[in-house]
């Protein structure tokens, strides 16, 4: 039981990173993207390939994974971000599937469907990270960093621009905001968070397989954002927790032989439908921008 709970905390952390990225893309700029799974896979495979085949330490693979994911985000963002709504969703979905297919078939680099196993443990202060508690600390440390960073960006000039783009593109561009530039930025940031999540996933599982990075992963990241509250980073972390709790609930209460694994997809669908009907803004809702009191204005009026 305790083990299960620790497992959920670990996975919630990994998915929280992906959801934070998804929130930057979907919650802040309003782009419906469905390719977090693709960037997640890229992060995982970078860590796996570099550490198994080239003997790099885990820590050194992180920047490579993050930067490569961001670059891929830019690469897919530039042509597709001209599209709107469902067209964009389909284009991004297609991109994630292309990545997975490449990974599945590039045998010489990725070992194809067999994946790469025996990824070495990360060393910290001369000792390998092994226990679940250590993993929790490691993963949530990264979650906090990304959260703080994204929160900071959201409060900056860039954050304002992203919100304006989401609200009205024509108005935003007539304010002098370069829409494409900010959309691509958000996309790259979101992608790099998913890439980081991928690194941690590869490290924790110590193996990677193409079957892990299916479309459902992107859907889960989106679910976490919608469930928690779009445009609210704390809320999507909560969303990640709840979704993980739900997906492991059958195993946790020992009902896994009664409730089939596929039932959780039905459950996710049900949750999304209910949320859309009763609380479309998510559990916590969008975070309101807090304004500092100004010296000249009667701000508290």
């Amino acid at each position: 039981m305790l083990n299960f709970f620790l497992l959920i905390v670990i996975y919630a952390g990994i998915y929280a990173l992906m959801a934070l990225g998804q929130n930057m893309i979907t919650g802040y700029v309003g782009i419906l993207s469905l390719c977090q799974a693709g960037f997640f896979a890229v992060g995982s495979y970078v860590t796996a390939i570099l550490s198994v085949k080239l003997g790099w330490s885990f820590w050194a693979t992180i920047p490579v994974a993050v930067i490569l994911s961001a670059l891929l985000g830019v690469l897919i963002g530039l042509p597709t971000l001209r599209l709107k709504g469902d067209y964009l969703a389909i284009a991004t979905l297609g991109f994630a599937e292309i990545l997975r297919t490449i990974i599945n078939n590039w045998d010489s680099l990725t070992n194809g469907p067999n994946g790469i196993s025996r990824i070495p443990k990360a060393m910290l202060f001369g000792a390998p990270i092994k226990s679940k508690y250590a993993y929790i600390l490691l993963i949530w440390f990264f979650v906090l960093i990304v959260w703080a960073l994204f929160e900071r960006i959201a409060k900056s000039r860039m954050g304002r621009a992203l919100e304006a783009v989401r609200e009205d593109e024509i108005a935003a561009s007539s304010m002098g905001i370069n829409i494409t530039k900010y959309k691509v930025w958000a996309f790259a940031l979101g992608a790099s968070a998913a890439g980081l999540a991928g690194c941690l996933q590869a490290l924790y599982i110590s193996s990677v397989m193409p079957g892990t990075y299916v479309f459902m992963v992107s859907i889960m990241a989106l679910c976490m954002v919608v469930l928690g509250g779009m445009g609210n980073f704390a809320a999507v972390i909560l969303g990640a927790f709840i979704i993980q709790l739900i997906s492991y609930f059958p195993q946790m209460v020992g009902l896994s032989n009664i409730i089939p694994a596929q039932a959780r997809q039905i459950l996710f669908g049900l949750i999304l439908v209910l949320m859309m009907i009763y609380r479309p803004q998510g559990i916590l809702g969008r975070k309101e921008r807090k304004y500092k009191k100004t010296k000249t204005g009667e701000a508290s009026k």
Binding site: R157, R160, E163, E167, I170, A171, R289, G297
Partner: peptide, 19 residues
Amino acid sequence: RRVFADLTIEENLDMGAFM
């Protein structure tokens, strides 16, 4: 008009002075 409906009046003006 295309004002940013979910932003406050002050935020809308801030956006106008984005540059």
